[in-house]
Measured scan of single mutants.
Amino acid sequence: MATVKFKYKGEEKEVDISKIKKVWRVGKMISFTWDEGGGKTGRGAVSEKDAPKELLQMLEKQ
């Protein structure tokens, strides 16, 4: 499965696309949330040019 790689608060992170729940556009950035388990929700953002095609497809479906 595809993953999204991004930096959050200076830390490199990687999230499996299948865990992503919500995707939206903020200017030229793609923001998203995912389920971290245990009732926690993670947040992240990646530039439109660095976003994997699967993430962009999720954005178009909404």
Rank of each mutant, 00 (worst) to 15 (best):
K61Q: 09
I17A: 03
A51T: 12
W24Q: 04
G10D: 04
W24C: 13
K53L: 11
E60F: 07
I20S: 00
K40C: 15
D50Y: 08
L56F: 13
E12H: 07
K61S: 13
M1I: 13
W24S: 03
T33F: 07
F32H: 00
S18P: 04
S47R: 06
K9W: 05
G44K: 02
K13G: 02
P52A: 05
E36R: 07
E11L: 08
K5I: 04
R25Y: 08
G37N: 06
T3F: 08
D50F: 08
E14W: 04
A45K: 04
I30T: 02
G38L: 09
G37F: 13
K61I: 14
K28W: 08
K22W: 15
T33E: 09
D35S: 09
T3H: 03
I17N: 01
K53H: 05
A2T: 14
F32R: 00
G42R: 13
K9G: 06
R25M: 14
A45R: 11
P52V: 05
P52M: 03
S31G: 06
M29A: 14
K53S: 09
M58R: 06
W34V: 02
G44D: 01
E60M: 11
V26R: 12
V4E: 00
S31D: 10
E48Y: 10
L55S: 00
A2L: 06
G38E: 08
K28G: 14
T3E: 01
G42V: 07
S47N: 09
V26P: 03
V4G: 00
D35M: 11
G27F: 06
A2K: 05
V4M: 02
W24V: 03
K28Y: 15
P52D: 03
V23S: 04
K28P: 08
I30L: 12
T41P: 07
G42P: 11
I17H: 02
E14Q: 04
K28E: 07
Y8E: 04
Y8H: 08
T41K: 11
T41F: 13
K19N: 13
K53V: 12
D16C: 08
S31E: 09
E12N: 06
K21F: 15
K19M: 14
K40R: 13
A51Y: 02
M58W: 05
G42T: 05
E12P: 06
K21M: 15
V26H: 08
A45F: 10
K9I: 02
V15E: 02
T41Q: 07
K19E: 12
K9S: 03
V4F: 03
M58V: 08
V26S: 12
F6V: 04
G39L: 15
E11I: 10
T33H: 12
D16N: 10
F32A: 05
G10T: 02
E14V: 09
K5T: 03
K49A: 13
I30G: 00
E60P: 10
I30P: 00
Q62A: 15
S31W: 07
Q62R: 03
S18A: 12
F6N: 01
F6L: 04
K13P: 00
F32S: 01
S31T: 09
Q62I: 10
K9H: 14
T41S: 09
T41C: 15
A2M: 08
D50N: 06
E11Q: 10
K9V: 02
K21Q: 15
A51I: 07
W34S: 01
D35C: 15
R43Q: 12
Q57I: 10
K53R: 04
E48C: 15
R43K: 14
K40W: 11
K22C: 15
V15I: 14
V15D: 00
K19H: 12
L55V: 04
M1E: 15
K53T: 13
K5N: 02
D50P: 02
W24P: 00
P52K: 02
G37C: 15
V46G: 01
D35V: 06
T33A: 08
P52C: 05
E36V: 14
R43D: 04
A51H: 02
Y8Q: 03
V4L: 03
E60A: 13
K7H: 07
R25Q: 06
S31R: 10
A45I: 05
F6T: 03
G44Y: 12
A51S: 07
Y8S: 03
E36A: 07
V46Y: 01
S18Y: 10
E14P: 00
S18I: 11
A45V: 14
I30H: 01
E48H: 05
L55D: 00
Q57L: 06
W24I: 03
G10N: 04
